[in-house]
């Protein structure tokens, strides 16, 4: 079973990396995160100049002032780019007619879904490593004696990875429900925008505000971004990934059922 799963992952990875899309997406992600880092650093330099003698007064901490906001900005870019990477995973198999061949082979739906997800997870890891370069540049240019919190950065990147994986799982589920890649991208974008909207709803405050905000994966990233690993947040991402993969699995299974 594992061999077939890895074979699916390998084919999917090959497909991702032999089209320019993943490189173009990495290019934009790198440029945008670089831009965010420059903007945030500029603000930090101004604060350093203003409060150099009394840095506590301005909360001059790299992680709180630069790294955490940078990671929280990247989540919005993930909302836009991950549907583009996932739209073709299963939808194009149907559009090209190769799905029927896969469905009639020995390959089980679980192996197909897990293999595709494994490949997407590796692509997401690549995207996270593109983002990880930026804070490391900051650690390199900081004044001697400045504190750079590597373990908190690792926690923030772990959160971003889980967020990316959950978005990829949602995209895979959307791709399994249709035979049009464009429709799959639109559907997953809509679901992820809903997550964004839920987070915005949290700004209303009160019980409902925090309840709705708690349903959004974007709010779940906040703890990771500041260096706090909460069990509920990890479980939340596992649930989103598990639920989405189950949707994809049931959608593929439907074809066999219906014959």
């Amino acid at each position: 079973m594992m061999r077939r799963l890895l074979a699916v992952a390998q084919v999917e990875l090959l497909r991702q990396f032999t089209t320019p899309l993943v490189y173009v997406v990495s290019f934009f992600l790198s440029a945008l995160s670089g831009y965010f880092l420059i903007v945030l650093s500029r603000g930090f330099i101004e604060l350093t100049l203003r409060f150099g003698a009394n840095p506590e007064a301005a909360n001059l901490h790299f992680h709180e002032r630069i790294v955490a906001p940078l990671i929280l900005n990247i989540e919005y870019i993930f909302v836009l780019i991950i549907p583009l990477l996932t739209m073709r995973t299963l939808a194009s198999e149907r559009a090209q007619g190769s799905f029927e061949m896969l469905a009639s082979s020995l390959l089980r739906p679980f192996e197909l879904v897990a293999g595709k997800f494994l490949a997407l997870s590796l692509v997401v890891l690549l995207l996270v490593s593109v983002v990880a370069v930026e804070p490391l540049v900051l650690a390199f240019i900081a004044e001697p004696g400045s504190a750079f919190d590597y373990s908190a950065l690792a926690c923030a990147l772990l959160g971003l990875t889980l967020l990316g994986w959950s978005f990829a799982a949602v995209g895979l589920a959307a791709s399994s429900l249709t035979d049009s890649p464009a429709l799959a991208a639109g559907a997953s974008l809509l679901v992820l925008l809903f997550a964004w909207v839920l987070r915005l709803a949290g700004q209303g405050g009160g019980f409902w505000g925090s309840f709705l905000s708690g349903l959004s994966p974007l709010s779940r990233l906040e703890n990771f971004a500041i260096g706090r690993l909460a069990a509920a947040d990890i479980l939340y991402f596992i649930l989103v990934i598990g639920f989405s993969l189950l949707v994809a699995l049931r959608a593929l299974d439907r074809h066999r059922w219906q014959g």
């Binding site: 670089g34 350093t48 001059l60 901490h61 004044e143």
Partner: peptide, 29 residues
């Protein structure tokens, strides 16, 4: 958290821009 400081000269800033907005993205493209 221990405080951090960041001072960059104009030249260092333009080098940083070059690295983050040009060199790194092009490396991926």
């Amino acid at each position: 958290r221990r405080v951090s400081r960041l001072f960059l000269t104009r030249q260092e800033r333009s080098r940083l821009r070059l690295l983050l907005l040009d060199a790194l993205p092009l490396l991926f493209l």
